[in-house]
Design a protein around this nucleic acid. Structure first.
Lengths: 105, 105
DNA sequence: TGCATATATCAAAGTTATTTGATATGATGA
DNA sequence: TCATCATATCAAATAACTTTGATATATGCA
């Protein structure tokens, strides 16, 4: 069962929302990821957000953790980088839960 | 245009989420509203939440204002009471925006 | 009018979240 | 191994949010 309030809290910060948007767009410029493989998924590393937002690294790290904890993104180590991917499944479940709780009566 | 982050913030408090659930259920016991009229909409007054949650009145009032400001509920004075109604339109727009921002790419 | 009830607002206190700077961990590559 | 780079974690400071108790406003009714 998803934690609707926790997901809402994760989405309730403008910086985290922007990070989510960047992940959804999936356009990275910083780290060497390729898009030719069979199982390619767009992902971005921590330093991508540092570059794009001007925030210091520890601040980005804190927000990434919040998003991971809420299940909105997943992380995957790649060498010394860590790649992040948006988790559309959680977003879908979140919307479905909202619909069930509030709309469908 | 809806403010997605603001709506998420309004939904990110467990008390406000509970209030929303109560409004969606629309089962009031405190104030004299009838369900026979042609244009009847289920609504609840402030004191309903005070009774159901044990919170003091000013606290409920604060949270109702947060929900109203986010557009998640509407309010309507009825004599000395104020009735609240869930605004499913905003919830719908919120979900649509999430889908557009994060899922549809 | 005067009293009771319902809600709003305010300031102060309490709590939680965010930011920063420093330091630690862990991987890479010379 | 050693230096470098990317990320994580921590403690302290700051900022934002929530709660409370007191008071104000407004309506309804005797």
């Amino acid at each position: 069962m998803i934690d609707t309030v926790k997901i809402a809290k994760a989405l309730s910060d403008p910086i985290r929302y922007k990070i989510m948007l960047m992940l959804a767009q999936g356009k990275g410029e910083c780290c060497p990821i390729s898009g030719q493989e069979e199982d390619f998924r767009p992902g971005l590393c921590n330093c991508e957000f540092v570059a794009a937002t001007g925030m210091i690294q520890s601040r980005v790290s804190y927000h990434m953790k919040e998003l991971v904890d809420a299940g909105l993104i997943t992380e995957e180590p790649r060498g010394k980088w860590k790649m992040y991917f948006i988790n559309t499944k959680t977003l879908k479940q979140y919307c479905e839960q909202l619909a069930q709780d509030f709309v469908v009566k």
